[in-house]
Simulated scan of single mutants.
Amino acid sequence: MATVILLRHGRTTANASGVLAGRTPGVVLDETGREQVARAGERLASVPLVGVVSSPLERCRETAQAVLERQSGPTPLSIENGVNECDYGDWQDRSLADLAKEDLWSVVQNQPSAVTFPGGESMPAMQARAVAAVRENDAAFEAEHGSGAVWAAVSHGDIIKAVLADALGMHLDLFQRISVNPASVSIVHYSSARPTVVLMNTDAGDLSWLAAAAPTTDAAVGGGAGHATT
């Protein structure tokens, strides 16, 4: 199958003020966030992406645009509701400090599989639709461009954590052990055998090796030699 770069949007005005933005319209990158996504675009400039798939929210579309501006050739952008932010329902637009006082907060931290946000989405439903969207897009890019295709999905922290947990074979109740920072890059390669998590939560480092990476269905016994560096 193809290889997906999971890119979280850059820091937003809501992130900086400690508010759970959710799907609130009009939440955009702040100055720090714009700097972060510019650096992410630079990291990905050496990787010829066959496509970019973005959450419909402004902060992700801004991040996707920063990536597209650094690509050397035309790269299609599509909007994917499957990687939209979690529907936090009544929790949306509330401060994290206030939400931490709710009884549900400890369940979110320790047993996400049991959480349905009041007036919103359950966390298992969030994971299921996000994983399905990523895998369906990955299969489509592989079918069109071959198994060496690399594409990017621009999404949100909890969404990317849920996709990574699935790729790692982790139960959703363990997904809070994963960190996904603003504008961070994680990489998953799907194959007929299993997903392989190549990188997680990185904000620096050369990615040009992705352009020539040889996909394989087998794990390297003993760890292998790693990828070639430039």
Rank of each mutant, 00 (worst) to 15 (best):
A167H: 14
A204D: 13
G26C: 02
S95M: 02
A133H: 06
L99H: 03
F141R: 15
T216G: 14
G33L: 08
S55R: 06
V27K: 06
L29Y: 11
A128G: 01
S95Y: 07
A152Y: 09
S95I: 00
A204S: 15
L49G: 06
G82I: 01
G205W: 08
R59A: 04
R34D: 06
G205P: 10
I187E: 02
R135L: 13
N181F: 09
R129H: 00
G224H: 02
L44Q: 11
W105V: 00
A130L: 09
N15T: 10
P48N: 08
D158S: 14
I159E: 00
R23P: 01
A40W: 08
S179T: 13
A228W: 11
A162Y: 04
P215M: 05
A211T: 13
R177M: 11
L68G: 11
D138L: 03
A139W: 01
G119Q: 04
L210V: 10
P25Q: 01
C86Q: 03
D218R: 15
I5K: 11
G224W: 05
L7G: 05
P25R: 07
S55I: 01
Q71G: 10
G223C: 07
L99N: 01
I159S: 06
A212K: 14
D218H: 12
V180E: 04
A16S: 12
N181W: 07
G119I: 00
Y190G: 07
G18D: 09
R70V: 07
G26S: 02
A97Q: 12
V83Y: 02
W151V: 11
R34Q: 15
Y88V: 06
A2W: 10
A133S: 12
E85W: 04
A130D: 04
M126K: 02
S179Q: 10
T216W: 00
V115G: 01
G148N: 13
S191M: 01
S95A: 12
G148W: 05
Q109E: 12
W91A: 05
A211L: 09
S17W: 05
Y190A: 11
Y190T: 00
T216L: 03
V185S: 11
S147F: 06
A212E: 10
T13M: 04
V50A: 12
E31T: 13
G33N: 12
K161L: 03
T24L: 04
Q176C: 07
A149R: 10
S54A: 15
N110V: 02
S155V: 03
H9S: 09
N110R: 14
M123G: 05
A140K: 15
P182H: 09
S46I: 00
A128M: 00
C86D: 00
S113V: 01
A220Y: 05
G146Q: 09
G120D: 01
T229V: 11
D30P: 12
V150F: 11
P124E: 01
V154Y: 14
D166L: 08
S186C: 10
P48C: 07
S54D: 03
L20N: 05
V134M: 13
T229C: 08
T229R: 14
R94T: 02
L7T: 08
G119K: 04
M200V: 15
A139Q: 13
V150T: 12
T229F: 10
P112F: 08
A128H: 04
V50W: 09
H145W: 11
R11F: 00
T202W: 02
L20G: 03
A149G: 12
